[in-house]
Nucleic acid binder design. Sequence first.
DNA 1: TCTAAATGTAATATATATATTGCAAAAAGT
DNA 2: ACTTTTTGCAATATATATATTACATTTAGA
Lengths: 67, 67
Amino acid sequence: MKNMKLKLARVEKDLSQEELAKIVGVSRQTIGLIESGKYNPSLSLCINICKALSRTLNDLFWEEEEK
Amino acid sequence: MKNMKLKLARVEKDLSQEELAKIVGVSRQTIGLIESGKYNPSLSLCINICKALSRTLNDLFWEEEEK
DNA sequence: TCTAAATGTAATATATATATTGCAAAAAGT
DNA sequence: ACTTTTTGCAATATATATATTACATTTAGA
């Protein structure tokens, strides 16, 4: 499913997909596909994205279990 | 570098690499290589490992920045 | 000590994340 | 309305995570 938390954090920082992509060193498509939930990114990429957006892994990539 | 937090969490649950691997559906080698820091695992694998060990992404895969 | 279990390591094969390019559609600015 | 920026989507190519098998080494238990 889509990663809205990532998209919101990016927009809050006023970054386009392309700008974020350049910061973390991947292509714009990669960012877009992660936001739309079509990729299963690597841990190091997740960490780089978190650092670029001043968030943690749990902030952007962890879903609390619904009981 | 090695992922000691993962290894400790696994040992605390009294699981061998092979047992954890079976639970999360990967090979024993994959777990070993992640613990020894030679792999860059996928996000979904990290999440599965976290759930198997009752931890979060931040618990096992996030390093606080040293300032 | 002896044995079995657990882990490290290496080779090859496969699946998939990611890059690249290009174009279309949508959104935002003027 | 027009222009520019942003995003979506597709095709092909490449890099790398992961599987599989096998063997060596270390660790733990008897």
